[in-house]
């Protein structure tokens, strides 16, 4: 495999969005609603770097991974793979699959229960045109690369005979079988025992370093993101609310949501300390007009409810999508445009 230069952007998403159409209140005549699972996502996955995407359930992290692997097609936006824009109108082809692979969350569900492990590993090799006489050797090699030895012992097993950690290694091995350049890992450790989580994280790290893979690591566990990641992105309600080129975001969060997220991590040294709670937004937990987080934000300004905040640089290499950090000029432009809008409306009336 030709070695890629570390740090080179391999897969880039530009303003990627995906809307799902859902029935309103479930009634027969209810209007169909569109829900933005992912909105305006900008991600760059770089060779030899791990990007952690952090967010709560429903923040759109998993949909983002599926968009990037093209299992789900985006509503708008573009994907750039190796500097070439991907034609999103066509079906995802084998060439794309061989470059970008996705590891699913639940290792037990991701393996076909009635097929041997060997089948799951040999199929990708067969599909992607590895000559038949090399397949067995390649399968052994892949299993060894995820530290499952002796390989033959695993190839003949059924998934239910293996532990969660072993299965997740096999899932990663399956994704690696086609020698991808980009690996998307959708909460790869959340279904595993705490005792084997570190092993999987270390495996991802070493794969990233040895093979110069670009890895997107999706998690809700900010501690694991800090352990493994080179860059961090925080998502809320389908939008990216804060990002940093290093892990500085975790040490000095600027967006109120990130601050809450980090404050909610249990800290044994601060037993008895008061727990910071977000005001629950009630029914309007997601504000669709202004800042998505504003109904739950304790520091929300008046403008937050009506105007979508810009992405502002809060520190070198760290950006937050928040009005609190916006310059006066930026705030003023919105107030003015609001005023003029109001004037226009009043004139029309």
């Amino acid at each position: 495999m030709s070695q890629v230069e570390t740090g080179k952007t391999l897969l880039e998403a530009k303003a990627l969005s995906r809307h799902f159409i859902v029935k309103g209140d479930g009634g027969f005549f209810s209007k169909r609603k569109s829900i933005a699972a992912v909105e305006g996502a900008d991600v760059a996955l770089r060779a030899g770097k791990i990007l952690a995407v952090v967010g709560e359930s429903g923040s759109g992290k998993s949909v983002l991974a599926r968009l990037l692997s093209r299992i789900v097609s985006p509503t708008s936006g573009e994907l750039v793979l190796n500097g070439e824009t991907v034609d999103l109108k066509t079906q995802r082809d084998l060439a794309y699959a061989s470059q970008v692979q996705l590891v699913l969350q639940d290792p037990f569900a991701a393996m076909n229960p009635v097929r041997r492990v060997g089948h799951s590993l040999e199929r990708p090799l067969l599909i992607h045109g590895v000559p038949e006489d090399e397949i067995s050797a390649r399968a052994h090699e892949i299993l060894e690369s995820v530290s499952l030895t002796p390989p033959q012992q695993f190839l003949d097993r059924y998934p239910h005979e293996l532990s969660g950690g072993q299965l997740q290694r096999i899932n990663i091995a399956r994704a690696l079988a086609v020698k991808p350049k980009v690996l998307l890992a959708d909460e790869p450790i959340s279904m595993l025992d705490v005792s084997v989580r570190l092993g999987i994280l270390n495996l991802l790290r070493s794969l990233c370093d040895d093979k110069n893979l670009a890895i997107m690591y999706i998690t809700h566990d900010i501690a694991s993101a800090r352990y493994i990641a080179d860059e961090v992105v925080v998502m809320y309600a389908g939008q990216m609310v804060e990002r940093s080129n290093d892990t500085s975001l975790i040490n000095s969060p600027q967006h109120p949501y990130t601050q809450l997220l980090i404050a909610s991590v249990p800290d044994p040294t601060k037993l008895g300390a008061e727990v910071v709670k977000a005001p629950s937004g009630g029914a309007a937990a997601f504000n669709l007009n202004g800042c998505r987080f504003s109904p739950r934000c304790s520091q929300a300004l008046a403008m937050c409810a009506t105007n979508e905040p810009p992405m502002v640089e809060v520190a070198p290499g760290q950006h937050a999508k928040c009005w609190l950090h916006a310059s006066d000029a930026q705030r003023a432009s919105v107030t003015i445009s609001n005023k003029s809008k109001n004037e226009m409306e009043s004139k029309n009336v």
């Binding site: 699959a97 076909n112 990708p124 992607h128």
Partner: peptide, 21 residues
């Protein structure tokens, strides 16, 4: 189920998924 999605991710064809997985 996830294993069907996993088969799609590695690039299995529809007919193969139906009858092989």
């Amino acid at each position: 189920r996830d294993f069907v999605e996993a088969a799609r991710i590695i690039g299995e064809k529809r007919v193969r998924i139906m009858f092989g997985e």
